[in-house]
Amino acid sequence: MDRAAQGTSLAFLGVLAFSGSLPATVFAMEGFHPWLVAIGRAAIAGFIALTCLKAAKIAIIPERRDWPAYGLISLGVVFGFPVFSGLALALGASTSHAAVVVALLPAATAACAVLRAGERPRLLFWVACAAGALAITAFTLTQNQGTPTWPDLLMVGALLSAAIGYTEGGRLSRRTPGWQVISHTLVLSLPLTVPVTVALALLTPITPTPHALAGFAYVSLISMFLGFIPWYAGLARGGIARAGQTQLTQPLLTLLWAWFLLGERFGPATVAAALAVLVCVAVTQRART
């Protein structure tokens, strides 16, 4: 298996981990305030990351030259995506609808890879990427009588935040192991995530049902930490733009989780949009960077 194929395989493992994030967030919000879920997951993951760095005897603070990149990663994946996506779900967006909107994320990540990581994909890549984006845009507009809703706009904010965080993380992972990149990001965010989490825990109602605890555990351990280890490694090996297109498979996976865990029902338009982006990802994987 060549380096590009290894990158795609690793990236898909990350996507598989991330695909359960939205249903798990819905579970978590059954017993915890959306803001507490969004920030608390990073605080819990931060302590896990701190433990891992100490156990591996690696410096807690990364090199100063990388601080701006870590700041962007933190804004993107520690705060931006969890807050925006959590609020979208809290305002009534279904998991299946939000999952299909998130399929625009690979296009945004590819654009960031061109701007920040110096990657130059072929024309066929961009054609397939644009086709996937158009399929998702058309789906969103048809579901809302041609007008974007607040949950849709919040999900756009979530995917733009993630695209920035993914690009910067993939760029740093070219010379720093992916698990260290996400660990440093989470640890550097602790001075903000811990006091906010404590305040929210004291000021908001908490009902720790089994579903809520399981969902909170998933987004804290898997979505916020373990999933990033193969994800960043895959972006570094396979190319941020190319390997990042594996995330076009995430809507189908999340739809399956939403059906299995939440009992959500979705129509032919949702399935058609998800299948359209699945075809697009197949094309992008043939378009070498």
Rank of each mutant, 00 (worst) to 15 (best):
L87H: 08
L200Q: 10
L172R: 07
E168M: 11
L278R: 11
L261A: 10
L13N: 14
L36E: 02
A269W: 12
P106Q: 11
V114P: 04
A93P: 05
R120E: 13
G170Y: 02
G20R: 03
P191S: 12
R120H: 14
Q145V: 08
W257L: 11
C280Y: 00
T109G: 05
A45G: 12
L253R: 12
S223Y: 02
Y70N: 09
L16M: 11
S161D: 05
L91W: 06
R3A: 13
S161M: 05
I61S: 13
I61Q: 14
T197Q: 01
L248K: 01
V198P: 09
A11M: 08
M224R: 05
G92M: 10
F81S: 03
A233V: 03
A212Q: 05
G31K: 00
C52H: 10
A236I: 04
S19W: 02
A113D: 09
A243R: 01
I60Q: 10
T209R: 03
F81C: 00
G157Y: 00
P177G: 11
T289L: 15
F260A: 15
A111R: 04
A276E: 00
T109Q: 13
S220T: 10
L153W: 03
T207Y: 06
L262A: 14
P34S: 08
P62A: 07
S223W: 00
R288T: 15
F12A: 04
I229R: 02
L252V: 14
A17N: 08
A131G: 15
A276P: 06
A274C: 09
E264V: 07
